[in-house]
Simulated assay, not measured.
Amino acid sequence: MSERTVLIVDDESAIRDMLRMALEIAEYNCIEAENIQQAYTQVIDKRPDMVLLDWMLPGGSGLELLRRLKRDDSTREVPVIMLTAKTAEDNVIQGLDVGADDYITKPFAPRELIARVRALLRRSGAGEEQGRLEVSGLVLDGDSRRIYIGDEPVDMGPTEFNLLQFFMSHPERAYTRGQLLDQVWGANVYVEERTVDVHIRRLRKALQRDEADYSGLIQTVRGTGYRFSSRGL
């Protein structure tokens, strides 16, 4: 079995069984919870590498648990994929805005689920040495997966970290949303291009400081996508 552990949070036992079977075939360890209270306890006690979180749960929504995880320093970095039957764009964007790293809409094929899980775990960068990048006082340490502005640490999620790492490694070039999806999410992962805009917004917010605002490094290129540039900062 893989050392990677995935927490499955869903109130329907048949769905948990299906998810567990697919994940175990792909050699992931699985733990389960059927409501947000059980799920939070599992996150604290078992420290999973990822959470698959259903939107609709008894005793409170998955969104409520997501907010709680992202508010807590000890659980903020745990990657979360939302499982949802809600296909309206506002609901999807709401989940991403709160801090979800990805979402998958029911019904879905086990193959797609595993592709999403693998891509997100890869983006969370466990054990990968990436080196150090620095631009105008903004420092990205790939080995420890930490960001600093001066000596101050910057909090951001794994997807925003990988976006910033890609941008800092490829400055002064405009990329389309599709190209960013391929480079950061992975070419075999099917994510809507609108998702890129949400994570760009979250990345810019993380880079905003009263004493040094670095959000302007991420530039919108009209008709194309985005570019990382220190010119004019």
Rank of each mutant, 00 (worst) to 15 (best):
I36H: 06
S215T: 10
G99V: 04
D155V: 00
L19K: 02
L113K: 01
I149F: 00
E12T: 00
E32C: 14
R177W: 11
H199A: 06
D141I: 15
A109G: 08
S229P: 10
P158G: 07
D143I: 12
G157L: 09
K86N: 12
I31V: 12
E211L: 14
D11G: 00
I218N: 12
V78R: 08
T159W: 07
I218P: 13
R194L: 02
D143K: 13
S2Y: 01
R122Q: 00
I114Q: 02
R227V: 04
V92N: 10
I81V: 06
V78W: 07
A115V: 03
R67G: 04
E172S: 15
M1R: 06
L217E: 15
R145A: 15
P107M: 07
S13E: 09
V198W: 00
R118Q: 01
A206D: 11
P48E: 02
L23T: 03
A22N: 01
L207C: 13
H170V: 04
R67D: 09
M56N: 04
M18W: 05
R194A: 00
V184N: 02
E3V: 06
H170M: 01
D73A: 15
V196Q: 07
I8S: 03
A100I: 11
F228L: 14
D210F: 02
V196Y: 09
M18H: 11
R122K: 02
I36M: 05
D151Q: 08
T105F: 00
L180E: 13
I149Q: 04
E134H: 02
G127C: 11
R111V: 04
F108E: 01
L140W: 13
T84R: 02
G62T: 09
I149E: 01
A22P: 00
R201P: 08
F167I: 13
Y28A: 00
E32S: 11
W185S: 15
K46W: 03
L23A: 03
Q130S: 06
E64L: 14
V135E: 14
L164T: 13
I81E: 00
Q219C: 12
V196N: 09
P110W: 03
N188L: 10
V189E: 06
E128T: 15
P79F: 08
F228V: 12
M82R: 04
Y40A: 09
E34R: 03
D197E: 05
S136P: 10
Q183D: 08
E64N: 15
L96N: 11
R4F: 06
D11V: 02
T84S: 08
D102P: 14
P110H: 04
A88P: 00
I114V: 04
